[in-house]
């Protein structure tokens, strides 16, 4: 129903124009802002591609929602040596890796 190029293509194209054509023409004091704009576009592009379905399903099955999970961790559940520690740890790892894949993919290398 929607026209192409799609959102990802448009964002990538806009980012390329920003970095390759606009940035070199900008005065130095605006370079930081322009680079931040390019970063924001890159994060948004990765957010569109991210598939949170599996992590969400895992979270729901294990703890219901993030607020409940957080509250149970604070209450001292899932400490090392408890039966659910490994499962809670694996779920957090999956959630954080997904979040990094969007916000900071270099951290996963």
């Amino acid at each position: 129903m929607l026209e192409s190029p799609d959102a990802t293509d448009l964002l990538n194209t806009a980012r390329e124009a920003l970095l390759q054509k606009l940035l070199p023409a900008l005065p130095a004091h605006l370079h930081y802002e322009a680079r931040m704009a390019a970063s924001a576009i890159a994060i948004a592009t990765r957010a569109i591609a991210a598939d949170a379905a599996h992590a969400k399903a895992q979270l729901q099955a294990f703890a219901g929602d993030a607020a409940t999970f957080a509250a149970r961790i604070r209450a001292g559940e899932f400490a090392p040596g408890t039966p659910l520690h490994a499962q809670a740890s694996a779920l957090l790892e999956e959630m954080v890796r997904l979040r990094c894949a969007v916000s900071a993919p270099r951290a996963l290398r």
Partner: peptide, 26 residues
């Protein structure tokens, strides 16, 4: 503004550090 908006996106990387550091501390 962009700077504050992007600062929020540092959090996931910090969370990755937190998981590693918590494991080592325990």
């Amino acid at each position: 503004g962009l700077e504050l908006a992007l600062t929020a996106h540092i959090i996931p990387e910090l969370e990755l550090d937190i998981l590693r550091q918590a494991e080592a501390l325990d």
